[in-house]
Every structure is written in C-alpha cells, then in structure tokens.
Computed example of a mutant assay.
Amino acid sequence: MRRSVRLPVLLGLAALLLAGLAAQEFRLFERGWFNLKQWWQPAAQGIGLDRYQVVLEAQPVEGLDDDLSALTYDPDRRTLFTVTNARSELIELSLEGRILRRVPLTGFGDPEAVEYVGPNTYVITDERQQRLILVRLEDTTPFLDAADAEQLSLGIGLNGNKGFEGLAYDSAGRRLFVAKERDPMLIYQIHGFPHRDPKQPYAVHVVQDRKRDARLFVRDLSSLQFDERSGHLLALSDESRLVLELDVEGKPLSSLSLRKGYQGLQATVPQAEGIAMDEQGTIYMVSEPNLFYVFKPLAD
C-alpha cells in the first residue's frame, strides 16, 4: 500500500521538476511578468510593437529557394538587402519582397548578417569565424570578394554556428551592435569599426552589457534593428517567436509576437531570420527559406 502511494507522489514531483526546468529554459516566468506589466501599464515612450499588424504575410520570394538570412534597410536606395549562405549572395529586395539584384560573395565563409552603415556601404558577418567584413557596393559591382574588403576578426567565445547572427547600426553614436545567437546569448557594442577617419589611428573598443542581456527573456537572437528615432534596439528571436523592443538602458518595453493569432497572423512565422525598419516605422521581416513579411502600426 505504501509503495502505491509513494509512486504517484514521486511522479508528481518529477512532473513539477520538469515543468520548472522547462519554465526556466523558456524564461516563462519573466515573459509572463513582462506581459502582465505591458497589459497593466504600457510603456509611454516606446515604439509600441504590440500595436503592429501584419499587412503582408508569408509571401514567397520568387526565384529564391536558398536560406534567407538577415535583413537591412537602405534609406538611399529605399530597398532592402539580405544574404544567403547556402550559395553565398548579397541580394537586393524591393519593399514588396521582389528580387532586384543578386551579387555573388567570394571568401565570406558563412555569411549570416548584413547591415547598412552608410551610402553604398555595408557590413557582412562571417558567423563561424566571427569576422565583420566591410563592403562597398556600386550599381556596377559584379561581385564582392572578402579579400578586397576591410575586415575585423573578434573571436570572442567561438562556438561553431552559434556565432554572430545579427547586426544593427547606430549612425549617430557610431556603434555597431553584434548579436551572438546563444550559448551564451550576448549583444556586443563595437566602437571604431567601420573605421571612419583614415588620418586617425585604428582603435576598436568592444563593450558588453551583461545586465541588459540578462533581461532578454528569449531563447536565441536571430537579428537586430536600431531605431534612430527613439534610440531603441529591436531584438528578434526565432525560437521564442518574438521581437523585443529595448530602451537605451536595455530594458524591455514592448513586444511583437510571431505566433498564429497575434498581430493579425494567420500562421506562426516558421523561422524568422531577419528584421529591418524604414523611416516610417514599417517593419520588414524574412523567414527561412524564402518568406517575406511586412508589419505596420495601427493608426491611433
């Protein structure tokens, strides 16, 4: 009789332990508390990601079957750029998700992110080797060779394909944000790259904010976007199906869910890999292997 009572108790304790471990892994308590605060008292100075609705959902990028990775907005061309790493290319997209141009990449290893940093100038990451590669793209550029480009190798906590996954650039503060995907999940701030003044010595300063990173109740980082208007950072997590808005101190302010039934989505975004934002605050997103999304805020 004693054994029959003890077995259900042990099974119950094991279930509670597993539930606790799952909650810790998925940061359910932190996310639940954040959602409660958002509902009770929305952030007044935030972008308000919860107000966004999808206006273009899961549109295939025609002519592309490879894995799209990352996204950046070019305000000069008023187009988007992404990269593929299966067959390394830099690809220019219209704001409607149509391919405008394909530029082959040579010697870039595992290109995982691209970021606009100035007219005709972009930074591309090599995820595995943790290289940042500065490229210049003219209308007549037939291909890009990493051997001809300015490069910065960091080699911080090398961890296979869980390396540099996302980029964002603050043009006013001249800061390049670099996201390490996970194990551990980190966001670095890099000052001094790209090198702006050839007359000055080359000096790179890398800053970490572990307090901010500890507030990120997401499982991984897929992409970043810096909003010049507010000075806030958007962090995209594929595994958590979430976009987080972080203020200047790294505090989460609002979120955009990528799950079915939220933000007007008819289906969950399967594998979100890149996020970009234009001057009007429209959010563009790509998902592997070749899906394109557009989100816009609801009118007040």
Rank of each mutant, 00 (worst) to 15 (best):
R175K: 15
V117E: 01
G160V: 03
G155R: 09
R128F: 10
G118D: 11
P142N: 10
Q151A: 12
I124P: 08
R174L: 11
V178P: 06
Y169F: 15
S88H: 14
P104A: 10
P194G: 05
A147M: 10
G118A: 12
L132D: 01
A203D: 02
L144A: 05
H191F: 15
V83H: 13
T121F: 00
L144F: 11
R210S: 13
E112P: 02
D145V: 10
I133L: 10
V204Q: 02
E150W: 05
E92M: 11
P111E: 11
A147E: 15
E112K: 14
Y202R: 15
D209M: 08
T125P: 03
H191L: 15
P184C: 01
D126C: 06
H205M: 12
R77L: 15
Q129R: 13
S153A: 13
E181M: 06
L105S: 04
D145P: 08
R196L: 14
E127G: 04
G157A: 05
G97T: 09
F108W: 08
Y169K: 06
F108N: 04
R174C: 01
A203C: 01
L137C: 08
L132E: 04
V117Q: 04
G107H: 10
V103F: 05
D110K: 15
Q130D: 01
G157N: 07
T84Y: 07
I124R: 09
F164I: 02
L137D: 03
R175T: 15
S88M: 09
K211P: 00
G160D: 06
G192I: 02
L186W: 03
Y116Q: 03
K180D: 01
L144W: 07
D76M: 12
V178R: 00
I91P: 06
D197S: 11
Y116N: 07
P142R: 10
H195Y: 09
A172D: 14
D197R: 08
V206D: 03
G107Q: 07
K180W: 03
F81M: 14
V103Y: 04
A168P: 07
G118I: 03
E127R: 06
T121C: 12
T84P: 12
R78N: 10
L134T: 02
L144M: 08
A146C: 12
V178T: 07
R174T: 01
V114E: 05
P201A: 02
V207Y: 13
F193M: 09
L137W: 09
A146I: 12
Y122V: 08
L93R: 09
F177T: 06
K199C: 05
A147L: 13
K211M: 11
P194E: 11
D183T: 12
G107T: 11
E115F: 07
V204L: 04
S88G: 09
L105E: 01
E181H: 02
L132T: 00
I91S: 05
L100Y: 02
L95V: 12
N85A: 14
R102E: 08
G155H: 02
K180F: 07
F177M: 08
L144P: 04
R98P: 00
V178A: 06
H205L: 13
P104M: 07
R102N: 06
T82C: 13
L158M: 09
I99M: 10
T121E: 15
V103L: 15
K162L: 10
V204Y: 00
Y122D: 08
I190V: 15
E150I: 04
